[in-house]
Amino acid sequence: MTWSEMQPLLSQACTDTLTMVVWSTLIAVAVGLPLGVLLVLTDRGGLVQNVVVNKVIGQIVNVGRSMPFIILMVALMTFTRWVTGTTIGTTAAIVPLAIGGIPFFARLVETAVREVDNGLVEAVQSMGGSTWTIVRKVLVPEALPSLIASTTTTIIALIGYSAMAGTVGGGGLGDLAVRYGYQRFETQMMWITVAILAVAISLIQFAGDFAARSLHSRGARSGPAPRLRLLKAKESAAADVSKAA
């Protein structure tokens, strides 16, 4: 297989993966964040303690988390058809991906929010803050570095899940690697997709770490890490230059 033959396949696969991962991440974050916060709030001793709600959400999250993605995808077909009107293609794959990502992200959010010092919650309560104020001004902002790290982990997990989207004709890089690299013995194609995935995942991880760290550094005891300081120094130097000009 020549490069000119592979190139359109690869670019289509990249677009498909990107579409699936971006949309499913957005949905997973939008639904998983409130769910994760709710898990903390409704827990025993939480701000809006409600054991029943907590147990129900917890159970749903556990089932969602432990279900192998490929089974989830098949099991959700009726639902997918109801939402998107079809059970095949990239759009159809977004539904199970998002639903698989929600409990995954919700658990990570729960852990991140639980880490927030209860003293801060108490402080805002003593100022007369409502539960909503506490969520908005304390829990989410203080957990933000962890939440960003959780989002990174979720994106990477969803990239992994998206490889299985080929089963329902969702396309994407994983599908390409399976169909060409495995089934047609096009080893070259497989290595290229592997390389693209490796680079993409590294970049996402790096960007996520960078974002989390630069947010966290304000709260950290020791201040920003040396390398970040170097970057900042360069930035400010550049700013000075542009000002001078």
Binding site: D117, G119, E122, M127, G128, L144, R218, G219
Partner: peptide, 20 residues
Amino acid sequence: RQARSRVGMVFQHFNLLSTR
């Protein structure tokens, strides 16, 4: 909550928001 806002409180571990 309104009544609480008229009572100030300081804490052993300060409880300041690190991101602000």
